[in-house]
Simulated scan of single mutants.
Amino acid sequence: MGASSQDLRERWKTFSKCVCDGARLMVGQGDYQVYAAHIRKTHPDQEPMTEREFFRNRENARFGVGNRNGFRCC
Rank of each mutant, 00 (worst) to 15 (best):
Q29T: 04
T42N: 11
S4C: 10
R11D: 15
Q29H: 08
N67K: 03
R11Y: 02
H38K: 07
F63N: 11
V19L: 09
I39M: 05
R24Q: 02
A36E: 12
V65Q: 06
I39V: 14
D45H: 08
R62D: 10
A23Y: 02
K17S: 03
A36P: 04
G2K: 08
A61P: 04
R68A: 12
L25Y: 08
N69D: 10
K41L: 15
D31E: 13
S4M: 08
V65A: 03
K13S: 11
F63P: 12
D31N: 05
R68C: 08
E10T: 07
A37W: 07
S16K: 00
Q46N: 12
Y35F: 09
N69H: 10
G64M: 10
L8E: 15
F54H: 07
V34Q: 11
P48D: 12
E53Q: 09
Y32P: 04
A37Q: 13
A3K: 12
C74I: 13
T42G: 03
Q6N: 09
Y32I: 01
A23C: 10
R9P: 02
A3C: 09
C20M: 14
D21W: 01
T50I: 06
G22L: 00
H43C: 05
L25V: 13
E59P: 00
D21P: 00
V65C: 00
F63E: 15
C20I: 06
T50E: 08
L25H: 12
C74N: 14
N67F: 04
T42D: 14
G66P: 06
S16E: 00
N60F: 04
F63S: 14
A3S: 15
Q33R: 03
D31G: 01
C73D: 15
F63A: 10
C20Q: 10
S16Y: 02
K17C: 03
G66E: 11
Q29D: 14
R40F: 05
C20K: 08
D21Q: 03
D45L: 09
V65K: 02
Y35G: 02
A61T: 12
R24K: 06
D7N: 05
R58H: 12
D45W: 02
P44K: 13
M1F: 08
F15W: 09
